[in-house]
Design a protein around this nucleic acid. Structure first.
Lengths: 349, 349
DNA sequence: CTGAAAGCGCTTACAG
DNA sequence: CTGAAAGCGCTTACAG
């Protein structure tokens, strides 16, 4: 239990005043090279660690961290969990003169995204947490932040080749691979598997990568399964009828829904009285959870969405205040949920 | 962004000095009832939140938190992860005048446990994190801590009916239930399941509860599976031979090892060239992980051991310093690991 | 280029 | 029972 030395002690060792030591620590210049080197040497030798409490208390600087994520509502609450994590982190670090301002955009509107980016830039934040849904706009925004030397972090999805401090999210390919693996445990050889994309719109980059992962796994067991990709638009009666026909076939034993809407398939299975298929989906939407508990969905795969928000803010905090290194790629664990462990997962934190 | 009021502001509002406000906040008495009530009212009204940084910085009090867990080594590193979590938490809160001292005991020796408890009591700690392996000794110890009003937390296993601030660990029954559930996905009806306890010694409370969970699940599908409990002592050639014979039977399709030594079964399967059975185990010992990746173990079930240590210390910190409420029962998520997601789980943090 | 002084919000003796 | 003062370790103008 060696008591940490203080700036005052370093100053005494170096034969200067605390102010000079502080200037060296913060690279504020105005110190002779000789003093600077000597102080740095002492700091190194005694392994000086600043007291962050005192630093934050004395520091007049207020850091502004801004987050921009898709909004959420009762119909689609996927983004509620990250938002919750952001808020929890904000509370934890508020004493450190850090305020976190949360912005939201409509994930189907580039315009709303651009509008918020503009507002954020005008605020001159010290750090940004961002869900980079729209590629070009994000690249442009990132460039502007780079110029201002403002750190930014991506969550949920990533854009390669940018200077983001970190990415927090899933490895989609691997989570697809895992889904196929889980299905293979319970699916007999020679049966059919449906890979379903739901929603009538373009699949997200995430969904595409998941499907690649699924294909990759299935290609390792050649000839064992037949599989078909289906686009299901539940708003379109024809699409729905076609899907109902497909899923009713006896040789179809497994279904993987590659976006977060597995509950739509569960609903159809429920209506048709189908119970003998294994359905695997992603993300802990309330309706997915409901069907998981009822047994219509066998597995849900999740990526700690609350953690993404929490850790994203904490990483910015660490970078700005603690000045500690932040991992650039931070893949979150790929969690497997069943009716048996879901409650423990949800209750935790 | 309303700036938080300070003690000084409260004092002004109440027409007293900061010292008096402080006396009220900390129940140090020596304040007229009239002033006390008035100050409390104002604190309530303006929703005063103390600045923890300033509080800790000014506070001369040094908190001592002590942990007592089983030691670990290369052969048995189960307790390495909790220890790591304890250390991480200690680092994070060291600025708050908190030091964490870690004690270890031999989990097979009551004597070593008792010896450490005695030492700990002599240190007069402000909080204790404990793995209550030995029941009677823990009850006695807990009573002494109760008398001193020292908060204590149990991790990994629990003892009911004590005044521990919190319990952090798994719900063993449910994790057994889940293991049986996972096995049922891939095990055809009418096949046999082995439930294996390894080690020649008494099964732990945890293992017993897991087996109860397994039985509970299996009893919900009556007649679907045959199952047998086997005690395997790998040091005993006869026990090993008997086990090898059992596991070689064609109708045995699934094995659950109810303690952390699934790798022993995997080794035997490996030696015998058996590849067509599903093996499920617990805990992320290096050898278990090795066989999980090789596919000899289908699933491992884990309970975030690192988190148990981390959160245990943080809960004591929250109770002692932040003065926030701590949940008494904190079951950790029951995580399902396969060869596909294990690396993301291990890399995380 | 350097040091002395004041202040961050809170706590703790001390004097009255 | 109460208030003024000093101090926690660090930062920030300010004067020289």
């Amino acid at each position: 239990m060696i008591k940490n030395l203080r700036i005052k002690d370093i100053a005494k060792l170096a034969g200067v005043s605390p102010g000079t030591v502080d200037r060296v620590i913060h690279n504020r210049g105005q110190v002779t090279e000789e003093n600077r080197l000597n102080i740095l040497k002492i700091i190194e030798e005694v392994n000086y660690k600043p007291n962050l409490l005192a630093r934050s208390l004395a520091n007049k600087k207020n850091y502004l961290i801004v987050s921009l994520c898709p909004g959420f509502n009762l119909q689609n609450d996927y983004w509620k969990a990250p938002d919750h994590g952001i808020e929890r982190a904000a509370r934890e670090i508020s004493d450190y003169n850090i305020s976190v301002k949360r912005f939201y955009f409509d994930q189907f509107s580039v315009q709303s995204f651009k509008k918020q980016l503009k507002e954020i830039l005008e605020l001159n934040p010290d750090g940004v947490l961002l869900s980079p849904v729209f590629r070009e706009e994000t690249i442009d925004f990132a460039q502007k932040l780079d110029e201002k030397q403002v750190p930014y972090i991506f969550i949920d999805s990533n854009i390669d080749g940018l200077n983001n401090l970190s990415y927090l999210g899933q490895n989609s390919f691997q989570s697809g691979f895992l889904a196929a693996r889980l299905l293979s445990y319970s699916t007999p050889a020679d049966s059919s598997i449906l890979i379903v994309q739901i929603g009538g719109s373009e699949p997200s980059n995430q969904a595409i990568r998941r499907e690649e992962g699924i294909h990759n796994f299935l290609s390792q067991t050649p000839g064992k399964y037949y599989y078909t990709h289906i686009d299901l638009d539940t708003q379109n009666p024809k699409s729905k009828a076609n899907f109902s026909e497909q899923i009713s076939k006896g040789d179809v034993k497994g279904i993987i829904v590659i976006n977060s809407k597995a509950f739509e398939v569960a609903t159809i299975m429920n209506d048709l009285g189908i119970r003998d298929k294994n359905l695997i989906g992603y993300d802990l939407l309330p309706e997915n959870i409901k069907y998981l508990k009822e047994g219509l969905i066998s597995f849900l795969i999740a990526q700690r969405p609350e953690e993404q928000g929490y850790k994203g803010i904490m990483s910015l905090f660490n970078s700005l205040v603690v000045k500690s290194k932040v991992e650039k790629n931070n893949y979150l664990p790929i969690d497997i949920l069943t009716g048996e462990n879901i409650d423990y997962y949800l209750n935790y934190i």
